[in-house]
């Protein structure tokens, strides 16, 4: 009782040192483990083995759009062809795709049912494939992404 009374009016000085130590330790830990990573994204592809050939043709089925990417001697892109006709670049390819399926991407639309089959040369640099997928899967218009064809598959790999 006596103790309590005596300490009543006094200001208690808390020793901050351990807390600040710990806090700074924590801060340096989080600062050191911080790793700045570039944001990444995915292209989802569902490609079961052998189902495409086994699937029975029905009215809803639209023939796949065949995109052929040929490689130059150094693995660079030599030529693009869509359904057998040459296309100059990926922008042109996107325009052709839009011309084919339109911009309606609602449920059961032509764009949703159409499938793109990528036929690439073995030595082609992968970056071109991603560009081709980007060209067929959508476009950016006024900062908004307009989706086109989402179903993408590859032809079986060729050795060469």
């Amino acid at each position: 009782m006596a103790k309590r009374e005596s300490s009543l009016g006094d200001k208690i000085a808390i020793d901050m040192t351990p807390m600040i130590d710990v806090v700074f330790q924590l801060m340096s830990f989080f600062m050191c483990t911080l790793k700045v990573v570039a944001p990444e994204g995915d292209f989802d592809i569902r490609m079961p083995l052998g189902v495409a050939a086994a699937a029975a043709p029905d009215d809803q089925q639209v023939p796949p759009v065949r995109v052929k990417l040929s490689a130059g001697p150094d693995g660079g892109l030599a030529s693009i062809a869509m359904n057998g006709t040459a296309v100059t670049d990926f922008d042109e390819l996107r325009k052709r795709i839009i011309g084919l399926v339109g911009t309606d991407t609602g449920p059961n639309s032509l764009a949703e049912r159409t499938e793109v089959e990528l036929d690439c040369d073995y030595s082609l640099k992968y970056v071109n494939v991603v560009r081709a997928i980007t060209a067929v899967s959508g476009k950016v218009q006024d900062g908004q992404v307009v989706e086109l064809i989402k179903k993408i598959k590859f032809t079986p790999p060729k050795r060469g």
Binding site: D44, M47, Y122, P156
Partner: peptide, 21 residues
């Protein structure tokens, strides 16, 4: 494609081709 093919042979069929956003 070879990698994808091997995955398919093992029964995997969902793929996510990752790209930098």
């Amino acid at each position: 494609q070879q990698i994808i093919r091997m995955c398919q042979e093992k029964g995997f069929e969902r793929f996510a081709l990752r790209a930098q956003y």
